[in-house]
Design a protein around this nucleic acid. Structure first.
Length: 852
RNA sequence: GCCGGUGUGGUGGAAUUGGCAGACGCGCCGGACUCAAAAUCCGGUGGGGGCAACUCCGUGUGGGUUCGACUCCCACCACCGGCACCA
């Protein structure tokens, strides 16, 4: 054994050993309980960063721990390999995206292996390979058959200089993330996945996500955005048109003083003759800063009270939500209020704050001032209270009591909502409806490096899906990427020109590719099988298929930035696949851990801020074990991790100390076969040895429960450090001492092995055990052995710490009370004062309550 | 604006059910080793007061509940994150 801890040497040694023995290869084994441990796969950008190190260190600890716990663990890794950066690199460096991507994968795979991660590489997924994206196309075709894919015109984010559609997340402050051009809205014909078909189910399914962080579930719920309300038809005066509106506040229907419709609303062109003015409004559509409107000259009738109200075109009304038309109640909606002020429209109050019972004081005002907050107030005088002051500064949007609302006057607003809805339905004026904020998922991208959409356009037959037998539609490689915009596929005749599968005539292929989020929506299902060109659907449909064994994922780990998009899409895809008879689960991810960011100098590490720490440098200098240990020790996984050079050195120091202890004793440890597990030894232990023995059991307990309880690795590692501190001050002399010492070291190495696998494996061998430590079982602790012989009893007087005494655990309450009262210090303080009460918490404390 | 989260020493963070606040690490201070330094090892380290035994204060702020509150309740402040004309 070498005196110096040489991380590089032992890490290479054991990585080679593990790979050669294939100890991470996983097979289906129905006799064992399965555990599917998954980390979000990386985009092969070129190099791993600290975020990856943290993410994958967390996942690896869980995978290794579960394996030692006897689970059959699936722990795979792959590459989210399609995407725009590859195209950018291609243009900049004149390399093909494919070459660039595969080169990056090669390098990053080496980096991951240097971290000593326990992946089964035989299941590696690379989304840009035809054998993978073929199934994107297959799903597309099946969804098309089922009406879950459709094509429509819609507004999309368009970068004029790149000449491509951008995803929402690629638009930063209304600018293109790549070239900083202002992104515009452009109407384009695009392919959509009908995720809204599953909106209700995805919302309901949130209830099943017990193992997810609450905030992520909440973000999903908010994203789906269910709104229950009612649609009401307002007839337009002197026209054969109904204006259908949606509202969640039917209780305010009597307060309608005007109507607004979206500039893109189909009726808008019928109502407005001045097209120029309409275009002006359209130009300001969706702009948050100002509300502008245009009076159409037309009026509509409120079907509830037959009041005639003017109809406006307004830029703030969205075509995409509800019906694209609203009833405006300025007294009870802030936006309507602002609009009414601007265009001098009437404001009619129909809800006032509910009367609160006043406990004291004269009833100077019928409503508590606190709740009025700038809202409407009643003017004293006119008996019935119908006269209301209108000089308030903002809309009153809270609940209250209806006034001036016909037969519903006096009703509480929440009840009125139900009653008016019922009334509308009975009279046939409209119907109760549910709206969702979630929109269908536009998947068309005018990019090259993605999955070709398997569609053919024929002049005679129209839109023709590529027949199933003809997929994959392979992405051609011999293209020229100029960066001038537009898909290079458009220039490629061999790709573009195709025979129509229906009529055999000349036809043209779709040149758009799929959003890369499609790739990542089901990759975790592909991992259930070996890599290669498999017939995925037959594998999925097979009896006792590997997917039914492995799915769902037991633990998913990744950044919170995917809280909505990727996780929502995956939940959607899982349901689609279920309905295609390919899966028998509803939710793909049982438990989700969203790890925090890696922070340096108060900001997320990023190249533009120049505060990145290169994992290569870290592993070169300290080794993978130190790097892993630090990233797990510095903060609990779900919190942000503040980078600290000194902290890394601390982690390294700990491993060095451990190495030193073993080095100092390795010959003796190797010679001594026996460990202290045998109770005969225990009875003969010296007090020092007994203390170490007890600490060892306590540490097993602590580390195990810390891992089980919310993966609190930071405190688990702190426990390991305590045990090492204990060992440092222990000098074995007798056989019993050595047995105790060896026992402590062996347990420590087992407990350390998921965190810092190489050094644990090396020292395990050094002290005379056969590799691999990872075929060992996770150690158990003995509750009795972990128990302290004497524990401190805290004695408080009136809740303040006044004395401590040593007691035996299990001393009865009466005894504790007696001991506390007899304590010298306590006697002095209590003196002659009367004792009101004594509270005894068994094994912990006694609190004496005295007067004065 | 709406929703959610977080506030603990010089610092990253502990504290399982309301029961010793500050585990463990970093830093700092002192000591050992050394010609010296680094590394390593040993000891100390929330703040104020006291020679000392000891004592008072202390978990963002202000209240409350309780024998007892970092923990529960109410109000507020600060920071972080998500959504944002969603009718």
């Amino acid at each position: 054994m070498e005196e110096r801890y040489d991380a590089q040497r032992i890490e290479l040694k054991w990585q080679k050993y593990w790979t050669e023995r294939g100890i991470y290869k996983t097979d289906l084994d129905p006799s064992k309980k399965k555990f599917y441990c998954l980390e979000m796969f990386p985009y092969p950008s070129g190099e791993i960063h600290m975020g990856h190190v943290r993410n994958y260190a967390i996942g690896d600890v869980i995978a290794r721990y579960k394996r030692m716990r006897g689970y059959n663990v699936l722990h795979p890794m792959g590459w989210d390999a399609f995407g725009l950066p590859a195209e950018n690199a291609a243009i900049k460096h004149s390399v093909h995206p494919s070459k660039w991507t595969y080169k990056n994968i090669d390098y990053m795979k080496k980096q991951l292996n240097r971290m000593g991660l326990s992946y089964d590489w035989e299941r590696e997924v690379t989304t840009c390979s035809p054998e993978y994206y073929k199934w994107n196309q297959w799903f597309f075709l099946k969804m098309l058959e089922r009406g879950l894919v459709y094509r429509k015109h819609s507004y999309v984010n368009w970068c004029p200089s790149c000449a491509t559609v951008l995803a929402n997340e690629q638009v930063i402050d209304e600018k293109c993330w790549r070239c900083d051009s202002i992104v515009v809205q452009k109407k384009l014909e695009q392919w959509f996945f009908k995720i809204t078909h599953y909106a209700e189910e995805l919302l309901q399914g949130c209830g099943e996500l017990k193992g997810w962080p609450e905030r992520v579930v909440l973000m999903q719920k908010n994203w789906i955005g269910k709104g229950e309300g009612v649609e009401v038809d307002f007839p337009i005066v002197e026209m054969d048109e109904q204006l259908r509106i949606f509202t969640t506040r039917p209780d305010t229907l009597f307060g309608v003083t005007f109507m607004c419709i979206a500039p893109g609303h189909p009726v808008s062109e019928k109502l407005v003759k001045d097209i120029d003015k309409l275009e002006t409004i359209k130009g300001k559509y969706g702009k948050e800063d100002e509300k502008i409107g245009l009076f159409t000259g037309h009026y509509a009738i409120n079907p509830l009270n037959s009041v005639k109200v003017p109809v406006y075109i307004a830029n703030f009304v969205l075509m995409e939500y509800g019906t694209g038309a609203i009833m405006s109640v300025p007294a009870h909606d802030q936006r309507d209020f602002e609009f009414a002020k601007k265009y001098d429209l009437p404001i009619k109050v129909v809800i006032v704050p509910e009367e609160q019972p006043q406990e004291e004081g004269p009833p100077t005002h019928p409503y508590p001032a606190r709740r009025m907050a700038g809202g409407p107030s009643r003017v004293e005088g006119k008996g019935g209270g119908e006269a209301l002051s209108l000089d308030f500064t903002e809309a009153y949007e809270d609940e209250g009591v209806l006034v001036d609302s016909g037969q519903f006057t006096g009703m509480r607003s929440d009840i009125a909502r139900q009653q008016i809805t019922k009334f509308i339905e009975e009279k046939g004026l409209g119907k109760a409806v549910v709206n969702y904020k979630i929109r269908d998922w536009g998947i068309s991208r005018q990019r090259y490096w993605g999955t070709p959409i398997p569609i053919i356009y024929c002049d005679k037959c129209g839109i023709v899906p590529v027949p199933e037998k003809d997929i994959p539609v392979v992405l051609p490689e011999d293209v020229k990427l100029t960066g001038k915009g537009g898909s290079p596929l458009f220039e490629l005749e061999e790709f573009l020109k195709v025979q129509c599968p229906k009529c055999g005539g000349n036809a043209r292929r779709e040149t758009d590719t799929m959003d890369t989020f499609v790739d990542s929506s089901w990759y975790f299902i592909r991992y259930c099988f070996r890599k290669g060109d498999i017939d995925l659907t037959s594998e999925l449909r097979a009896n006792n298929s590997e997917s039914s064994y492995w799915m769902p994922v037991d633990q998913y780990i990744g950044g919170v930035e995917h809280a909505v998009l990727h996780l929502l899409y995956s939940r959607f895809f899982t349901r689609v696949m279920r309905d295609l008879g390919l899966l028998n689960i509803n939710e793909p991810f049982q438990n989700l851990l969203t790890q925090g960011m890696v922070i340096k100098d108060g900001a997320k590490m990023s190249k533009s801020k120049g505060n990145v720490v290169d994992p290569n440098y870290l592993i070169d200098k300290y080794g993978a074990d130190t790097s892993r240990l630090f990233s797990l020790f510095a903060a609990p996984p779900e919190k942000d991790l503040e980078w600290s050079d000194k902290g890394v050195e601390g982690a390294n120091r700990f491993l060095n100390r451990l190495w030193g202890i073993v080095y100092k004793n390795h010959e003796a440890l190797n010679a001594k076969r026996k460990t202290a597990e045998n109770p005969i030894y225990i009875s003969r232990l010296t007090p020092d040895a007994l203390r170490l023995f007890r600490k060892t059991h306590q540490t097993i307990k602590k580390v195990t429960t810390d891992i089980e309880r919310e993966y609190h690795f930071n405190t688990a590692i702190a426990g390991l450090m305590e045990l090492v501190n204990e060992m440092t001050s222990f000098e074995p002399k007798s056989d019993e001492d050595w047995a105790t010492f060896k026992f402590a070291i062996e347990r420590l190495l087992l407990l350390l092995s998921p965190f810092s696998p190489h050094i644990a494996e090396e020292l395990w061998e050094t002290i005379g055990n056969k590799p691999s430590i990872f075929v060992q079982e996770w150690p158990d602790w003995d509750e009795d052995a972990a128990k302290e012989e004497k524990i401190e009893l805290v004695i408080q007087i009136n809740g303040k710490l006044r004395s401590k005494i040593m007691i035996s655990p299990g001393t009865p309450d009466d005894e504790l009370k007696k001991m506390a009262l007899e304590d010298q210090k306590i006697k002095e303080i209590v003196g002659a004062k009367a004792i009101k009460k004594v509270i005894v918490i068994r094994g912990k404390l006694v609190n004496i309550v005295i007067v004065g």
